[in-house]
Structure formats: structure tokens, C-alpha cells
């Protein structure tokens, strides 16, 4: 007879811990990847509803990797199915600072946000996981299942492009 293990995902208290630990990370990760906050919200909910629905099938040891893979695959399927997603690019990314700071360098901040949209998806994900989630290169590599060297190269490219894009814009203004 197959029994439900003691620490199974089907146990609601375990499921709650998994949800609290990974749902927000998944939402942000999908937002960095696909730049559509509505899609990220829907997919995050769908991933966890599927996990709950089929909880007996999943192994808790691989749960983090599974959640991110499911999130990415469901998003790609959704985009493929609908061909076009209408959403403002990373519109939910804001800056947290005082009103005085808001006045200073406003143009630079706006241009930085615009420039983030011109990075490749891979570069943008690495940059934002480091700057917003405060993850180290090692932790990003672990989550994306790539080498640390690959993460460092993507970060280097991201910074190089941002510097070029922001430099061109400042020259135009002069």
C-alpha cells in the first residue's frame, strides 16, 4: 500500500511553507523574463494550483527547480498560444527612495528603466536577480542551472550595454 510520506507536499502546512518560500521569487523571476506582470501573476497562481492538485507526484527535494521550470514552461506555452502579449514592459519595477531623491536624477532613472528593456532576456534576468533579489552570482547560477562563469559573462554584457545606452543618451542631450 502506498502511503503519503510524513513531509509530503499534500500536507497543507508543508505546502504553505513551499508557497511562502518560492511564490514571490517565481513572480519576480517571470516578470524579469517576460516583462508582463499580469502574466506573471496568473502563471504563479497556476503553478501552485497544479502543484497542489498533483501534490503526491512531486518530490520535495527538487521542488524549487520544478517550480521555476513549470513557471517558465507555462509562460512560454501561454505566449505561444496567444502569439502576442499586451503588457507594459516591466511597468511594476519602481525605485524606492525619498521625495528629494526622486527629484534628483529622474531622467537617469527613466532611461535606466528603458534601457533594461533593451537587454537580452538572459542579461536582464541576471542583472535584476542581483540588483533586486540581492542574489550572489553563485546563487543565480544555482537557480538558473548554469555555471557561475556564465552568470558573470551575462552580468558583464548587461553592464556594458547599459553603459553604452546611457552614454549615447547623455551625449544626445548635450
Amino acid at each position: 500500500m502506498k502511503t503519503v510520506p510524513l513531509h509530503s507536499l499534500c500536507d497543507q502546512s508543508v505546502f504553505e511553507k513551499v508557497y511562502k518560500q518560492y511564490s514571490k521569487d517565481l513572480y519576480r523571476f517571470l516578470t524579469y523574463s517576460f516583462q508582463d506582470t499580469n502574466l506573471s501573476e496568473d502563471i504563479t497562481q497556476n503553478v501552485f494550483l497544479k502543484l497542489w492538485d498533483q501534490c503526491e507526484k512531486f518530490d520535495l527535494r527538487n521542488i524549487k527547480s520544478l517550480i521555476f521550470t513549470m513557471g517558465k514552461n507555462l509562460s512560454l506555452n501561454e505566449i505561444k498560444r496567444n502569439q502576442k502579449i499586451e503588457g507594459a514592459p516591466i511597468k511594476e519595477i519602481h525605485f524606492s527612495e525619498s521625495p528629494q531623491e526622486l527629484l534628483e536624477g529622474k531622467q537617469f532613472k527613466e532611461k535606466l528603466t528603458q534601457s533594461l528593456n533593451q537587454l537580452s532576456e538572459k542579461e536582464r534576468i541576471v542583472f535584476l536577480m542581483n540588483r533586486i533579489d540581492n542574489l550572489t552570482y553563485h546563487e543565480i547560477a544555482d537557480q538558473l542551472e548554469v555555471s557561475q562563469k556564465t552568470v558573470e559573462k551575462r552580468m558583464h554584457q548587461a553592464l556594458k550595454k547599459l553603459n553604452t545606452l546611457l552614454g549615447i543618451d547623455l551625449k544626445r542631450k548635450k
Binding site: 519576480r28 519602481h94 537617469f108 532613472k109 535606466l112 542583472f127 535584476l128 533586486i132
Partner: peptide, 10 residues
């Protein structure tokens, strides 16, 4: 500037 970026979770 990028250290002040935040993503609000709904």
C-alpha cells in the same frame, strides 16, 4: 540607482 529597484508583488 539599480540598488533602489523594487518589484511589487500583488
Amino acid at each position: 540607482v539599480s540598488s533602489t529597484l523594487v518589484v511589487e508583488v500583488p
